[in-house]
């Protein structure tokens, strides 16, 4: 068990680098949320924070606690796995909902649904 007072230099630099890089990328992603022009372009912005931003900050956290407690602390993997599996699902659902709304309003910005022109029966499964 290391106390915070004699936390080694190299680990402090590494943790600082990881956390700073992660938060900077997350901020860039959120700025994209403001700068990008329409909804479908904006959907791409939060993935920055949810992939690299999250990964870097969690690596920093795992490194910090592993050095601090002088044993491998890897439960950050849980958050990483969880966020990696759920963020795509939410973004896909949201984008599909937006597409559906735009299509029912007859918006010309989105490609139309062409289900009507080939009435094949839905496949099993």
């Amino acid at each position: 068990m290391t106390t915070l007072g004699d936390f080694p230099d190299w680990a402090a630099w590494l943790v600082a680098l990881c956390v700073l890089a992660g938060s900077a990328v997350t901020l860039i992603g959120s700025i994209g949320l403001l700068r990008l022009g329409n909804f479908y372009a904006r959907v791409h912005a939060p993935t920055l924070g949810a992939t690299f931003g999250m990964g870097a900050i969690l690596v920093g956290s795992a490194l910090f606690f592993s050095v601090l407690e002088t044993r491998p602390v890897v439960h950050e993997i849980l958050i990483a796995v969880f966020v990696t599996c759920t963020t795509p699902v939410t973004l896909m659902l949201l984008a599909r909902a937006a597409l559906y709304r735009d299509r029912t309003e007859g918006s010309s910005d989105v490609p139309p649904a062409d289900a009507a022109e080939n009435p094949l029966p839905p496949q099993q499964g």
Binding site: S23, R42, A45, S61, I79, T90, L91, L94
Partner: peptide, 28 residues
């Protein structure tokens, strides 16, 4: 849909903020 996208981003950012608080206080 833009508002919901903002809410989702807010949640992810808040989660990262909590992780950084954890490092700062040294508590799991």
């Amino acid at each position: 849909q833009d508002r919901i996208l903002g809410l989702d981003t807010l949640y992810v950012n808040a989660m990262l903020m909590l992780v950084s608080f954890g490092i700062r206080t040294g508590s799991t």
